[in-house]
Amino acid sequence: MTQNELIKKLGGLRAIEPNEEFVRVSRSVILSSQSGIPIERTTRNTIFSRGLSFAASVTLTAVFVLVLALGSVAGSLKTLFLPTLHGVNNEALVSEADAVTGDIDIRLNDIEYFDRTSRTVALADSSQEGMLDGEDEIDELLNQVIEY
């Protein structure tokens, strides 16, 4: 083997290429750190664990966004479909609600009436009791006068 053949053979080592996944992760780890600031010693395991933690954060964020999206979609569907539910007579519902309201009003009026009348009766009773007490007192005073 001549020296030129040897040199040519050495040139064949240029075919070696780094793993694409490694290059991508390593590059992002290096560039995400700030220049001029000492960086912790990083090994292959930590490079890939950082990649995994990044993937986990992305997944969690995606799940969160999905939940939010589902919530808003469900809300929109509720407002869209509820007024058009089949088998529900809106007019009957309104008249039934009016009847219930009227019934409640009547009962409230009754309560108010009973309350008012009971107060009046109570006042009348108390005034009669006062009158009776006064007559007894007068009788007692008259008896005392007679005794003198």
Partner: peptide, 29 residues
């Protein structure tokens, strides 16, 4: 990477050392 790999002869070690080389370079640029 090629330089390191041919010297250490082990792919994972070469990746570690190459990564550290560029990390140091960025840190001390």
């Amino acid at each position: 990477y090629r330089f390191v790999l041919v010297k250490v002869g082990h792919r994972e070690e070469a990746e570690d050392l190459t990564h550290q080389t560029f990390l140091k370079a960025w840190e001390h640029i």
